[in-house]
Nucleic acid binder design. Sequence first.
DNA 1: GTTAGCACTCGGTAAAATCGAGTGCTAACA
DNA 2: TGTTAGCACTCGATTTTACCGAGTGCTAAC
Lengths: 347, 347
Amino acid sequence: MARRVTTSPDNADLDARKATILEAVVVEHIDTAQPVGSSSVAQNADLAVSSATVRSEMVALEREGYLAQPHTSAGRVPTDKGYRYFVDHLDAGVLGSAQQRQVREFFAHVRGEVEDVLEQTATLLSRLTSYTSVVVGSGHSRSTILSAQLVNLDARHHLLVTVYSDGTVTKNSVLVNFDATASDVVEASRQLNALLIGTTLDASVQVPSRADVIARLVREGVSLLHAEMPTAEGEQVYIGGSSHVAEVFEGVETVRQVLSILEQELLVVTLVEDILDKGVSVAIGSEHGYAPLSSCAVIVAPVSLEGETVGAVGLLGPTRMKYREVIAAAEAVSKHLTTHFGGGDRA
Amino acid sequence: MARRVTTSPDNADLDARKATILEAVVVEHIDTAQPVGSSSVAQNADLAVSSATVRSEMVALEREGYLAQPHTSAGRVPTDKGYRYFVDHLDAGVLGSAQQRQVREFFAHVRGEVEDVLEQTATLLSRLTSYTSVVVGSGHSRSTILSAQLVNLDARHHLLVTVYSDGTVTKNSVLVNFDATASDVVEASRQLNALLIGTTLDASVQVPSRADVIARLVREGVSLLHAEMPTAEGEQVYIGGSSHVAEVFEGVETVRQVLSILEQELLVVTLVEDILDKGVSVAIGSEHGYAPLSSCAVIVAPVSLEGETVGAVGLLGPTRMKYREVIAAAEAVSKHLTTHFGGGDRA
DNA sequence: GTTAGCACTCGGTAAAATCGAGTGCTAACA
DNA sequence: TGTTAGCACTCGATTTTACCGAGTGCTAAC
């Protein structure tokens, strides 16, 4: 994993010394959140050159867009491009052993439904990294239906409960303006089940056209189910450690904006999927195109099952986040999730 | 509604002038977030006394614990006790007409499952008030089971889907270490259904003691279902507008703490229920006993169905929040929710 | 009981002074 | 040609000082 997919094709390699200097600046700035001066780079990075030399290199790096100066006579700060170079040339990080144990422990003991596991995974990730985490579980629109059952609540109100092959369960309220007896509902349920079993939501089915109560119930049920297909693809989003947003960003306004984005789950899904689509695992600053998140970096790792991407885990932090550790954490967790659901215990 | 339940029994009424002054201080401080001086009180409140008189009254109010002084030679700020008096003597607020329309509109058009409605209600409330909202839906532990169905996923993995009379649906993974045929599962499902229909989770049922596959499946299902009863009472929590936390509290640390509390859904449920149990609708500052929320006020209103409390809506803001408007909003929404679920369309 | 008058307090703001990390540049050097 | 020591210079951050004025508490008179 010497290098990740780069986004900017013109990202020509820097010569060794410039690279070292850039890296030193990034590392120190991530650590201190302060502009980095030439002398501390000259000392820390093993360059065996003086600060004056570093200085002139920094001028070059700034001209090429990797570094920026908050103001004259201040040190340098990495730009998004600088972070991008850093991340692209990052060698694989390894999770600390304590954290490794934490992850193993978690997956060894976690129980329950997919939804619960994903939610707890979000918490795990945020604990692990001290950043806000996002876990996305893909929808079930392509799963086949294992069971569709109509349950009678009262005369005009029934519940259609559908079980999919991926283990998800949905319910739909069926409200009708005619009365149905309990046995009507039982029969409608039987027919619905027969009709829908083995189909997917995007397949069309042959509904009965009769005008009796049972047929009407069946039609109502099928149309309800198919109606929700396009809107709610059923993606689930779990967010962990949103309080870290307040720790990690300076400026109340930034905090507000980020929280506000996180509130819009649909947006979060799109963001994560956009990044995944680009085949990138890290989006820095403006790379993802969401202006309010321009001071953020987002790291995502896919969760796949039998070759197909069924979800993703993500972490959101400031552009000056601890990339190595966080990438390592995201990859470790995504791998564990994959085997967790891929292996025997797939609920 | 001239007065709400008070918490402190020694909360003897203040004489009219002191009350007026206290109210003026509270109102102005809520508006400006600044300490309030005697002269502005003398002018704004129709007291027809001089600032000197107001001053001496303020000294008394401070001695009695209703006001505090950030430092000598600053104006006065209400204490929790001061806010408490203010709230207890607040006359019923009315929602602005624009907001009234917003609420009516919402409930006229909202569709879908209880869970969805509650979630959207949380968003509505936070939009309405510009504070963070909390909507709690009570669990289903007391509802009777309408249907319990076992669905076969693969040889050793089944899904128990249970429908309750309140319209909630749960699923439980049934993992066993023996193979079952499809027809085994169908029969087990039939038996489970017969066994559980009409019971509540806290009732015990007579499970078959035979050693065959079907009986084992049935036993497994029943025990799984009953096992989850105590832990997950199934309360649902929906939080809306958490980004308002960042607007409304000064100090990053406070924001972090509040967000951190909101992350712990269990805590939020307990908080809201505690407040409801006390029969109070407003908890100010330290009244609710959660230290990290000592700079918050929480307003709750119950949602009842057929006389029983089945949920609650709440709003969380700084102690200097706009009590009248917010209380009005909470009550309006809780009332609408009650009729929404109480009326015909109860899904 | 109320009020005008007044000395006093003290946080907030602004202006001034100071500091120093860090720069850019130049001239000398290998 | 690349490197480096030296140095003047910049400019944000911090500290100091001065000052203002809102607001108080107290007292004496009404």
